[in-house]
Simulated scan of single mutants.
Amino acid sequence: MLRVNRKKQLKALAMEKIHQLIYSSDSTVPMEFGTVINEFADTFLEDESIFEHLNDAYRQKLASLDLFSQGIDISYRKEHHVHTITYLNQQFSLDDASYVNFLSSSIEIMREVLPLGSVVELDPNFFKPDPSSSKPVKVVIKGRFITPKGYQSYFPYAGVVYPLGELKKDTVIHFTHPLIKSVVHVGYKDEMEESFELLMKKEMIVDKGMKSIEFSSKDMKKLQSEINPKVKAGER
């Protein structure tokens, strides 16, 4: 029951953010698409794979993609930096910035956040502190929703290498969801944890308009320019 209620709460929060993106004073979303976008989100938000596939298509610069969910065909087309989604004989079109905000907000709010104490393996293609080893590094999550000084976006996770821990200052690793290769252990979660997740998503994504660094090309470029060549991602 807790999981069902949590999903409903996350969906309500995502719908609030989408409403904000559509109807805020600085929105560039054409008003005639507002109802269709809301209906699309209301129908498919809980099928997180739809938004992940659309995001992958955007990143890979695909011109088209056909999807299927809940017995409904979904068609994505891109032409001259305009992204059009068609479903149930309805469609809406968004420019690059609005489309990215729509996808990233939906994904971030609906995506599960791992609790403190969880142990994950980071993708060695991006995080490889030991060039001689091809094995993924295990990291224990010790913080979430971290906003580094000088950045306009946040890191979903901060952790320390298992089993060493934080042996010295500045050995904390900051990383994003795509860097997680596998989840080895899930930490303790209760109603307080779920309330914390909702609170942070509300404050950072809805109220402050922030996004995970994975969705910020500006901050991602800044991060990459600061990273030691021997450590290719995730660590500051």
Rank of each mutant, 00 (worst) to 15 (best):
F155E: 10
F145V: 02
K135D: 14
I146D: 00
K142I: 13
V140H: 13
V140C: 14
P129W: 06
T147C: 03
V139W: 00
P148A: 09
Y154E: 06
K149Q: 13
K138V: 06
Y151I: 06
K135M: 14
P131S: 01
V140G: 12
V137R: 00
Y151G: 05
S132R: 09
F126P: 05
S132W: 05
K138Q: 14
P129N: 06
K138M: 11
V137K: 00
G150V: 08
V140W: 11
I146W: 03
F145R: 05
K149Y: 12
Y154R: 02
I141Q: 15
I146L: 11
S132F: 12
S134M: 14
D130Q: 04
P148R: 14
P131M: 05
P129S: 10
F126D: 01
S132M: 11
V139Y: 04
T147D: 05
S132L: 14
P148N: 11
K138E: 13
Y154I: 04
T147Y: 03
R144E: 10
S133L: 07
S153W: 09
P136W: 01
K128Q: 05
G150R: 09
V140T: 14
S132H: 07
P148C: 09
P148M: 10
D130R: 03
V140Q: 15
I146R: 07
G150Y: 09
V139H: 03
S132E: 05
S133E: 12
K138H: 11
S134P: 02
I141R: 15
V139F: 08
K128L: 00
Y151H: 12
F145H: 04
K128E: 00
K142T: 15
K135N: 12
T147G: 00
K142P: 11
S133F: 00
G150H: 08
V137I: 08
P136K: 02
P148V: 08
P136T: 03
F155S: 06
K128G: 03
